[in-house]
Amino acid sequence: MSQLTNEQLERYSRHIILEQVGGKGQKKILSAKVLIIGTGGLGAPAAMYLAAAGVGHIGLVDFDTVDLSNLQRQIIHLTNDVGKAKTQSGRETINAMNPDVQVHAYDEQVTAANIRDIIGDLDYDFIIDGTDNFPAKFLINDACVLMRKPFSHAGIIRFQGQTMTYVPDKSPCYRCVFPKMPPKDAVPTCRQAGVLGVMGGVIGTIQATEALKFVLGIGELLTGYLLTYDALTMTFRKIKIPRNRRCNICGEQPTITELFDYEQPTCSFGR
């Protein structure tokens, strides 16, 4: 890509000063394409930090509209955005933050029928799973494994969070750790759907960190590790996880070779 403008040199100066980044690294970031599936508790902070960093193309996938109950943690959306499409609200915030970023909005829910097209639309470099339900999480894993795309998986609930990074051939995938989706009839009680707002900020920003490190080619990713976080005890643990030879999608004898949709949860507290 062409030279950085004076304004970009100033905007990204704190990046450029870093030995592991430099002008070269910032140009990589400006050329990068990151897809964020779900602009909720995890996706919102991830998107904002990636926009601030200057990721040139950010894809936002969300079929939902902004709800008042989202505002406690989905900081990309503001009070005046209630009722607006989340991708629209997300795009507006990002545009105001950084004109170097182009937002690509996908106003839909990921399904077996569309996820390949969405990922393939710009042939995204890295995918961030910001979803809050297991059908989507398994679908995203399967799509990324089959399409050979690196991605960050994460989940948050109450005062806990966890995340891992998948890079094709170099790490376990989500199914290595969790081979099967939990039964669809396990519906949460209201108490189980609470989450401290900041949890998304901590874990979502870690996901954005992994995306930037991948784009820059620096540091060690959370490949082969599940990072868990307990906010009450302020404990981070990095649990080493092996590739599972018996994994049904990335193991030695995979049984899953195509994408399919799981049943959706029946409780609307999913968000």
Binding site: F134, I157, R158, G161, A193
Partner: peptide
């Protein structure tokens, strides 16, 4: 021993501590 739990938000949850 490590116990690894589903954590997806809204559905099945991690350890209730």
């Amino acid at each position: 021993i490590e116990f690894l739990y589903f954590m997806g938000g809204g559905q099945l949850v991690a350890t209730d501590k």
